[in-house]
Structure formats: C-alpha cells, structure tokens
C-alpha cells in the first residue's frame, strides 16, 4: 500500500507541473543549459556598463519567457523587488550611520539588481525545465571519475525519494496534531528539527547502508572503463543556442570596452 501513497503524491504533483515538451528550452541538452548559465554568471561579474547589462537582461528575460511559466516569473520578480526595497532601506541606514560613505545613485543601486535579475532568468530556465532523469543523463555525459559520479548519481536518485518521505512525515505529524507551518517553525525551531529531521536522517542512514551493500553486490565501482549504454550527443539547437549566447556576450563586452557603439 505504500506504493499507492507514492502514486498519489506523484500523480498529484504531476498535475501541478505543466508539460514543457513544446518549449524549446525544455528540449535543450542539460549540458547546453549548464554552459549558458555558467558563462552568463561569469560574465556578469566584470560587466559594469549599464547598456551591456541591459542587453543581457533583455535577452535572458526573453529566454525565461520562452518557457511560458509566467506565474513563477512574476513571483520571482516580485521577490526581487522586495529585496530591492530592503536594499534601499539598508542603504539609507548605512548612509545615515556612516555619512562618509558614498550615497545612493541610480547607477550604483541598479547595477547589482540587473546582475541578480540576469542570473535569476538563466537559473529559472534550468531549474524549471530540468527533470531528474535528464539530470542523471547529463551527469553521466560529463564523464566524471567513479568517486564523483557514484555519489552524485545517488544524490540525484534520492532527491525525489526524500521529497516523498517529507510528505509522509508531514501527513503523519498533521494527524498527530502538529502542522508544520511558518509560524510553528519560527516559534519552535529546535522542535521542528526533531519532528521533521530525526525520521529523515534515520531513513537516510538506513537507506545508505542498504543501497551501499546492494551496489557492492552488483559490482559497482570495480573497474575504470565504464561503458555508456545511452550516448547523448548535443543537437543542432544546442549548438545554435550556445553560439548565440557567445555572440551576445561578445556584444555586451564590446559595448563596455568601446568596440561596439
């Protein structure tokens, strides 16, 4: 019967996640999406020219909007705006406490937020369009050594298992009379840890022992030359998007350093 609980949770959660197959970003290889967000995250640090950053912001926002998850996008941007408000308050307090420090100008205030928004756009695309199975495939294609690949694969394998466990623990607590909501967590942080994490850690330790033994009995980790049953090559669209990313980053740096007017 435990399986039935699982089925219900998964079907229920599946209904909450719209199918993304039609959107082009969902069909991109996980390695391509990794390269895009990694190169963008590296680029935003040295960039300080507002027009260069504005170009990246526009293109990355279009990339995010292409997956048509407008509600999540809106929530993320509202959160960012909230942080922006906190920053104004914080800057005001700092300039009040330390009058010698530079005051707030539009450029100095807005640049860090543009950087965060760019990162948010590329990260959200990855997070929303990636599926656990795709992550495992992506991980395999990175050709990592055994001692990194095995725990990383186990980590990905266990994330959905723990999500399911947490749901069961929360349900069990709810029928006992403990509803883990924000107010409860803030009023009883240590008690929350005991209620939620003790069962989870014990489950983790027991599962790890059992899975470790099973892996050993199946001969995992015996040889260096692991074969690859499924070989996934980057597709045309992956190469096109990667080239486009490089071109846009080149334009942004060109604007900053005066090569492009």
């Amino acid at each position: 019967m435990r399986a039935s609980y699982v089925t219900n949770y998964t079907t229920e959660s599946a209904t909450k996640t719209p199918v993304l197959k039609k959107e082009f970003a969902a069909n991109l290889d996980v390695r391509a999406k990794m390269l895009i967000s990694f190169s963008v995250s590296l680029a935003v640090i040295p960039l300080y020219h507002i027009e260069a950053l504005a170009i990246l912001l526009t293109v990355s926002l279009a990339y995010l909007l292409s997956i048509r998850r407008f509600w999540i996008t809106l929530v993320a941007y509202i959160t960012l705006a909230f942080l922006c408000g906190l920053a104004i308050l914080s800057s005001f307090m700092v300039s009040h406490l330390f009058p010698n420090m530079k005051g707030l100008t539009l450029a100095t205030f807005i640049l860090p937020f543009i950087r965060i928004a760019i990162l948010l756009n590329v990260i959200l695309v990855m997070a929303i369009t990636s599926r656990v199975q795709g992550m495992l495939q992506g991980l395999k294609s990175l050709r990592l050594p055994y001692f990194i690949y095995l725990p990383a694969a186990v980590m990905i394998r266990f994330i959905p298992v723990f999500i399911k466990d947490v749901s069961q623990i929360k349900d069990s607590l709810k029928t006992k009379g403990y509803d883990i909501r924000p107010v409860f967590v803030c009023l009883h942080p240590f008690f929350t840890v005991r209620l939620l994490f003790v069962p989870l850690v014990i489950r983790a330790l027991r599962s790890a022992d059992e899975l470790g033994i099973a892996a050993e009995l199946k001969g995992v980790g015996l040889r260096d030359n692991i074969s690859h049953y499924r070989k996934k090559q980057l597709g045309k669209s992956d190469y096109v998007v990667l080239l486009l990313t490089l071109a846009i980053l080149a334009v942004a740096f060109g604007i900053q350093y005066g090569f492009v007017s």
Binding site: V132, Q133, L136, A153, V154, I156, R157, P160, S207, E210, L211, A214, A215, K218, G219, V220, G221, L222, R223, N225, I226, S227, H228, Y229, R230
Partner: peptide, 20 residues
C-alpha cells in the same frame, strides 16, 4: 532500496556499464 537508477532500463543496464 536497491535501485541506483530512476528508470527500469537504466537500472538493468548500470551493473553492466560498470563491467565495461
């Protein structure tokens, strides 16, 4: 508790991938 993969085919394949 004995599955290392998340898909039936991968689960059947992985011990043999480790054997080359």
């Amino acid at each position: 508790q004995q599955f290392l993969a998340l898909n039936v085919e991968d689960e059947l394949a992985f011990p043999h991938e480790w054997r080359g």
